[in-house]
Structure formats: C-alpha cells, structure tokens
C-alpha cells in the first residue's frame, strides 16, 4: 500500500472521506473484543454483552459495504441492520429470561456451574 493511498484511506486529508478499510478494521477489532468477552467471562450477562458487541460489528460491516457500494439496492444495508436489531432485541429478551431461570435454579449466573442437563 503506497503512502498517499494510506493517507487517503485513513482520512488524514480534507479532500476525501475515510475509506472502507478503516471501518472494516474497526469492525474486526470490535468483533474480536466480543468474542474475547464470550470466551473469557464466566458470568452469563458478560457473555450477552460479548454477543451484542459481535452483532454490532456485523451491523457496522453491512452499513459500510452498503455505503461504499453507492447505496446498492436502495436501502439493502439499513434493511439488514434493522433485521439484525430485531434479532438482537428478541435474543436479549429470551437470553435474559433463561438467565433468570438459571439464577433461580443455581442461585448464580456462573455458566461453569450450570453443567448438568437436569436443571
């Protein structure tokens, strides 16, 4: 990657907007942070936070690709974002219900303790 293109890509200029790669790199870092949160946490709520981070990284990718393709399909990118938000809302509600049941049964939301299938 030559130097001039990198300057343009990163937005250190006033003649062009930030490039696509900058958005993709931010989304990749966010996704990895969410995955780290899912893998390293024992608290179920912390795992849910990680899932939200990963979903948001996916939404950012959809929006960035849509914008840099010149608004393909009218509003295909925002439509994917809306569908993902609906999924995230339903998922958060149901996951919280499951965690509350977990808390009633085990008196904690530690996923390491919930290792038997009998409830």
């Amino acid at each position: 990657m030559n130097f001039e293109r990198m300057i343009t890509e990163l937005g250190f200029t006033t003649t062009a907007p930030v490039g696509l790669h900058s958005y993709l790199v931010v989304a990749a870092i966010l996704f990895s942070m969410g995955l780290a949160s899912c893998l390293l946490r024992k608290n179920a709520i912390g795992i849910l936070i990680g899932i939200e981070l990963m979903l948001n990284a996916a939404v950012l990718n959809f929006m960035a690709f849509w914008r840099f393709s010149g608004g393909v399909g009218g509003g295909a990118g925002p439509m994917a974002a809306i569908v993902l938000m609906v999924m995230a809302a339903g998922e958060a509600a149901i996951a919280l219900a499951i965690f509350l049941n977990l808390f009633y049964n085990f008196t904690s939301v530690d996923v390491e303790q919930a290792s038997n299938l009998e409830g």
Partner: peptide
C-alpha cells in the same frame, strides 16, 4: 484472529466512495 481479519480487510483495494 484480529490480525487475520485486518489483513483480509486490507489486502483488497479499497473502493472510492461513490
């Protein structure tokens, strides 16, 4: 994983914004 994703994101030429 982050390094691989960043490399994959950067290896293709970035399109100019339309």
């Amino acid at each position: 994983l982050t390094a691989v994703m960043v490399y994959c994101a950067c290896v293709f030429p970035s399109p100019a914004i339309n």
